[in-house]
Write a protein that binds this DNA or RNA. Structure first.
Lengths: 362, 362
DNA sequence: CTGTTAGCGCATTCAT
DNA sequence: ATGAATGCGCTAACAG
């Protein structure tokens, strides 16, 4: 029923071994024989049996890309970039083997699903795995991840982080590309402070995520440096609300912040989507942006330049980072020294931030 | 080195077959034996060899989800929904087999990559394939797709369309969920006409895509019904500009439309991102929305409610459609009669559309 | 309910 | 440069 390599061999009047060598192209074969084999492949519409091939070779051409939220362009941009470096040179023909199948897996931010996906990829003997975005800081989960990644690495799977800080003492990871979330967060808040803002609300991401913590730490460092943060934890906490990285969280948290402290003159969102929701809430309260309240985000997603007013934010080179992660996963680029590279974050000042009321230059 | 099923069998003092039965759970096994086997699995950190298993069983647990642009939430939402129905019940343990690996593949809208991905999935003996979003209308590509899908179906792969019209006379497709793009486009333009608009610019998607054509046909049908379209092709064409489904296209096309016909009072974007770019261009020309120009989009992506003013658009139930496609791919839902279901599109009237200047009720 | 047997389709020695 | 033979790790009959 289904055509096998042996069928191709018979039609090309060569041995199965020769067909295999032609398809994998990693062995000298006479040009004329190769032609004959390829014609037989086309004639028979033969498609290599991946499982059989992987079993025999003990490796597969699958590369997994894990993302926390596939509906968020933050991840989509990185995953797309990585995939374009990894997969499918794409002449559509692809009779031969050798192409990698780059494939994205959506964990939804759930640690269990993250581990499960890794197990599934391990089961497939994946050639490489790229983990994007922040990690959960729960010690139990971190230990489980380290163990799982170690086993993957032992089995020959290359492991690359993209936008995720390296695991402590884990040499399983081929390379870790990490964003300067702390520095970006600090510069953003410094910008607001330099405009004259003193009471700044912060809509943070979910608890126990590295991204959340680092961005918040940057914010607080700037506040503290300006003498604007209380000594205790409480003082900081009063103007901080945590929630998911989506517009709704920004919307609701902003209403809450405005209730807690009607005197806030600026709201910082953990990312651009949060900032968008925050903007909606601000306006719904009859306040203008930036005249009454400044709003800022993080990531500089494509839509941010088109909001009204355009959103002040911190730009992360998501596409470049994803592409580099893809090349690292392919072994097409040598890892940075120590396996770790920090990717810079650039402050983008736009129309959504301005000096607070009564504080403007005249 | 690597632990195999035989190792587990030895440790649990049963036969390999029994271990296999425990892991696949599709055969009666004594509870006590099962316990013993599972303990051995845990003790040894055993992970099933996917390729070997797939080879022996002649099926794999891979499900592919093809998207045109992974950075676009339109696809991210559908893919995420499908994935959540398909994969990873996710207790993190997953010692057993049986879980499907739902995996998304980004074609970037390229027909070659679409075919290549299908070949790669065919090579993996994928259990199912979900194709999302509009299709290319090029006859050559359509024929190639029909042939490829036919071969996949023959090999037992279930095929589901989500947001894509069915192929003519192709019974390879298990089910086709298609959006009412034409109806949505028509109702949107009817809304503008009812407000009093007469000169309406249209920023369409890329040529030769079903989605582009259907939405545009809806628009033109409404125009024609109101006696607002010229007889020839030219008249329609003058106020239509084609481009990719992104903000930049919306921005540039709008500048072009404004140049061609300064008297336009409304701009319709092929999707929300295009409409966002169009809004930016309108504002940059010193025009207000909706007082001077109305703007409308399509899809109702999450950000659309937060734009200023909120975007009038057409809502597509992307999550629900994706989830249903996922269930169909799993065989967990019976296909609609004839294998085809049309999913409704709902007009969402918001602040970005209003009567044209000098035409408002007073 | 459990063990035994025989491939699944291919890559890779080793010959030639 | 090509062919023949072996086994990758597992599932699916078939017995018992």
């Amino acid at each position: 029923m289904t055509v096998t390599l042996a069928d191709v061999a018979a039609r090309a009047r060569v041995s199965p071994a020769t067909v295999s060598r032609v398809l994998n192209g990693n062995y000298p074969v006479a040009a004329t024989t190769r032609e004959r084999v390829l014609r037989a492949v086309d004639d028979l519409d033969y498609v290599l049996n991946g499982p059989a091939s992987s079993l025999a070779a003990a490796t597969s051409d699958l590369v997994g890309i894990l993302v926390n939220d596939i509906a968020d362009p933050f991840f989509g941009i990185m995953a797309g970039a990585a995939q374009s470096e990894i997969g499918v040179p794409g002449d559509g023909t692809s009779r031969a083997g050798g192409e990698k199948l780059a494939v994205v897996c959506n964990t939804g931010g759930s640690p269990e699903r993250e581990l499960t996906y890794l197990t599934l990829l391990q089961r497939q003997r994946a050639a490489a795995v790229v983990l994007t975005g922040g990690a959960l800081e729960d010690p139990g989960h971190q230990a489980a991840m380290a163990a799982k990644l170690g086993r993957l690495a032992d089995a020959g799977t290359r492991i690359v982080f993209c936008g995720r800080p390296p695991l402590p003492e884990n040499d399983a990871v081929t390379a870790a590309l990490t964003f300067d979330n702390r520095g970006g967060g600090r510069r953003l808040t410094e910008h607001l402070i330099s405009l004259g803002h003193r009471r700044i609300g912060y809509v943070a991401g979910p608890l126990e995520r590295t991204t959340t913590r680092h961005r918040l730490e940057g914010h607080r460092a700037a506040m503290r440096a300006a003498g604007l943060a209380g000594e205790g934890f409480d003082a900081d906490d009063r103007l901080t609300v945590h929630g998911p990285y989506d517009r709704r969280s920004g919307y609701e948290a902003t209403l809450e912040l405005l209730r807690r402290e009607p005197g806030v003159t600026a709201i910082v969102g953990a990312n651009d989507s949060v900032a968008l929701g925050a903007s909606a809430a601000v306006r719904e309260q009859g306040l203008r942006i930036p005249e009454d309240i400044s709003v800022a985000g993080f990531d500089d997603l494509p839509f941010s330049v088109d909001t009204v007013p355009a959103l002040t934010t911190v730009r992360l080179p998501l596409y470049e980072a994803g592409a580099r992660a893809g090349r690292l996963a392919m072994g097409a680029e040598t890892p940075p020294p120590g396996g770790i590279a920090t990717i810079g974050a650039e402050l983008m000042v736009r129309g959504s931030t301005a000096p607070p009321r009564g504080d403007r230059p005249r």
